[in-house]
Write a protein that binds this DNA or RNA. Structure first.
Length: 475
RNA sequence: GGGUCGUUAGCUCAGCUGGUAGAGCAUCGGAUUUUUAAUCCGGUGGCCACAGGUUCAAAUCCUGUACGACCCA
């Protein structure tokens, strides 16, 4: 870094501003390559700019490789063309941003190159870049200093662009189906709509505790009460819990609510969404994730939650005694002591069934105890009308026929409180009051966007699809 | 929370059963007018994550801590 600071001084002595204000670019590197035939015939010079990736000096000439966001480009400096200015290039380093003007030609190895007739420093770098050949591998640096990861590993830049395209497609799908995108509060006085511990904060102006939302559900339902019939929100939610390959405390979801439909209608919607995403993101309806291949074919497989679990356990989970549940949990190495009845059942399900679901599958008709916001199943009052969309053992979506009976909803909240379940600390009276004004029959859906990105982009860790994952403080 | 593995130059990595710290790239100086992981010659660069312990001697063995990865809960 000392060497580079010296060069910086030297440049200033030469009256060269190392941090000028702008550069007029005529073409990106990709545009230059695409229009090579036409541009290389022309006498007119082109102007491009980018970061220096490599310098290959040959005495009175220099080849350098530059990169802009779109592509790489080789540029060629010759002393006989640049005269005294040629020496200025000696003060440039790998990593610096420069602008060049010149004409396109092909070298004898057939590489499109700019013969430089004029150049300018656009920004001097002080620190050396990670090595060009091996890239940056240290995952800790890749996550802590993502900008270095993005410089050194262009494929990572591609992943995040694809993620953005994916979110754009999701938005387009729902817009095209007549849904309206809404924005609801991130800071909530009462949290709810999911099972999780919240992040807590303090709202000075209102002199009260607030929570970062764990879900948007209860606000979007208020919008259905208000008369909208198809709404969605692409939201950042926050859950104050563990971090692992599939969990980041701060994560992205889309929640969708549609009036006058039920979970069957939502299943249909999800199938079409997934199909739409695949058709726009990849060439086939086959998907590879962590070396396992899966084919998408409508209709997706459906598995009844309790049937699957009962078959595996050999007894009926819903009529089982608490002691029997405890025994079963213990047998499967689950620490049941701190868990509510519902949590025990759900834990068993994840361990014994969900883990092994690879094909795109709707797990349907969950027990009522683990689904406080879902409507009772029309054929079995111990169950609710709910589905989870699961593949590769990962839960991607969760949906219900939404409970709209305010009296029943109050009972469920009270039961949740009595169970000391996560995700509720007190009853959201305002929400219940909204339901008392009447919510039409409604299907609701939540999709984890990070996990969906993981699967569609074949990334093994959620941190590979989140630009700035939180890590512990460095010491 | 538990287990396993990792942490050595700016980056990627070697470093054996303990004996003076190594390579490639980057960087600096020199040569080089079509190179492209350019090449050739010469140099700089290290609190071996941190703190203890064992030993005549520790990057190496032991203990603890921090951070990270993976697995389990």
């Amino acid at each position: 870094m000392d060497e580079r600071l010296k060069k910086l001084d030297e440049l200033r002595r030469m009256k060269i501003n190392p941090y000028p204000y702008k550069y007029e670019r005529t073409h990106t590197f990709t545009e230059l390559k695409e229009d090579f035939e036409k541009l290389s015939q022309s006498e007119k010079t082109v102007a491009s700019c980018g970061r220096i990736l490599a310098i290959r000096g040959h005495g009175k000439t220099v080849f350098a490789t530059l990169t802009d966001e779109t592509s790489k480009m080789q540029v060629y400096f010759r002393q006989d063309r640049l005269g005294d200015r040629f020496a200025v290039f000696g003060l440039f380093d790998i990593g610096d941003f420069i602008g060049i003007k010149g004409n396109l030609f092909k070298t004898k190895t057939n590489e499109i190159t700019i013969l430089v007739s004029d150049f300018a420093l656009l920004a001097k770098t002080l620190r050396p870049l990670p090595e060009k050949w091996h890239g940056l591998k240290d995952v800790e640096i890749r996550y802590r200093k993502r900008y270095l990861d993005l410089i050194a590993n262009p494929e990572v830049r591609e992943i995040f662009k694809k993620r953005t395209r994916l979110v754009g497609l999701i938005r387009k799908f729902f817009d095209d189906h007549g849904f309206v995108e809404m924005e609801t509060p991130i800071l909530q006085p009462i949290y709810g709509g999911g099972e999780a511990n919240p992040f807590k904060t303090y709202y000075s102006a209102l002199e009260r505790d607030m929570y970062l939302r764990i879900a948007d559900e209860l606000y979007l339902k208020r919008l259905i009460v208000g008369g909208y019939e198809k709404v969605y929100e692409i939201c950042r939610d926050f859950r104050n819990e563990g971090i692992d390959r599939f969990h980041n405390p701060e994560f992205s979801m889309i929640e969708v609510y549609q009036a006058y439909t039920d979970y069957e209608g939502i299943m249909d919607l999800v199938e079409h969404l997934v199909e739409f995403l695949l058709d726009n993101l990849s060439d086939s309806r086959t998907m590879v994730f962590c070396d396992r291949e899966v084919e998408f074919k409508r209709p997706f497989k459906r598995i009844r939650y309790t049937d699957a679990l009962n078959e595996k356990l050999g007894f009926d989970i819903l009529s089982a005694k608490e002691s029997e549940l405890d025994k079963t949990c213990k047998a499967h190495g689950i620490d049941y002591k701190i868990l509510s009845t519902g949590a025990k059942i759900d834990k068993l399900f994840s361990e014994l069934i969900q883990k092994y679901i690879i094909e795109p599958t709707f797990v349907i008709d969950h027990p009522k105890v683990i689904s406080p916001l879902a409507k009772v199943h029309r054929k079995d009052e111990r169950l609710v009308e709910r589905f989870e969309f699961i593949m590769f053992g990962i839960e991607l979506a969760n949906a219900f026929s939404e409970l709209n009976d305010p009296v029943e909803q109050r009972k469920r909240f009270e039961a949740q409180l009595a169970q000391k379940a996560e995700g509720i600390s007190k009853i959201d009276e305002d929400f219940l009051e909204a339901l008392e004004y009447g919510m039409p029959p409604c299907g609701g859906l939540g999709i984890g966007i990070d996990r969906l990105s993981m699967i569609l982009l074949d990334q093994p860790s959620i941190r590979d699809v989140i630009l700035f994952p939180q890590l512990r403080q460095e010491r």
